[in-house]
Computed example of a mutant assay.
Amino acid sequence: MNRIVKALAISAVALSATTGAFAQTQWQKDHPRRAEVNHRLANQNKRIHNEVKEGEITKSQARQLHKEDRQIRQEERDMAAQNGGHITKQEQRTLNQQENQVSRQIGK
């Protein structure tokens, strides 16, 4: 009986630790600065697809633009990992400048 109580206690502690980690992960993904950067990336993705569909850019150009966006997204994830799940205002500015460069290439 004592073993069962200990096992249940250990399970409860493990469950609460997992739940806490999940809540923190959700906050990290939904951080306002990260959300803004990721929203812009999603918008650019739609613009690239639209430009290909309309024949404004080639599939090769689209691949290159998507590659640049993926690199920006990875950089955003790396920055967030170093800062407890969020990015600083300066990091956001840096990412926005990179997104602006890609944005100017879309539909040239």
Rank of each mutant, 00 (worst) to 15 (best):
S11A: 12
S11G: 10
A12Y: 08
A14L: 09
L15I: 11
A17G: 03
T18K: 07
T18Y: 15
T18L: 13
T19F: 12
G20Q: 04
G20P: 02
G20Y: 03
G20F: 06
G20C: 03
G20I: 09
A21C: 10
A21D: 07
A21W: 14
F22S: 09
F22P: 00
A23K: 10
T25H: 14
Q26D: 12
W27C: 05
K29A: 12
K29G: 04
H31V: 03
P32L: 06
P32K: 04
P32Y: 07
R33T: 03
R33Q: 12
R33A: 07
A35N: 06
A35C: 04
E36R: 10
N38A: 12
N38Y: 10
H39M: 11
H39E: 13
R40F: 05
R40A: 09
A42S: 11
A42Q: 09
N43H: 08
Q44Y: 04
Q44K: 06
N45T: 13
N45S: 11
K46M: 05
R47Q: 15
R47A: 11
I48M: 02
I48S: 01
I48Y: 01
I48Q: 00
H49W: 11
H49N: 14
H49P: 00
H49D: 13
E51Y: 02
V52F: 01
E54M: 11
E54L: 14
G55P: 01
G55Y: 04
G55H: 02
G55S: 03
I57M: 01
I57N: 00
T58E: 06
T58I: 05
K59W: 05
K59R: 15
K59E: 14
Q61F: 02
Q61I: 04
A62G: 04
R63T: 06
Q64N: 11
Q64T: 13
K67R: 15
E68L: 08
E68W: 03
D69P: 00
D69C: 05
R70V: 03
R70N: 13
R70I: 02
Q71L: 11
Q71N: 13
I72L: 06
I72G: 01
R73C: 03
E75S: 09
E75W: 05
R77Q: 13
D78K: 10
M79C: 05
A80P: 00
A80L: 04
A80I: 03
Q82G: 04
Q82K: 11
Q82A: 06
N83R: 07
N83E: 09
G84M: 04
I87P: 00
I87R: 01
T88E: 09
Q90V: 06
E91Y: 01
Q92P: 01
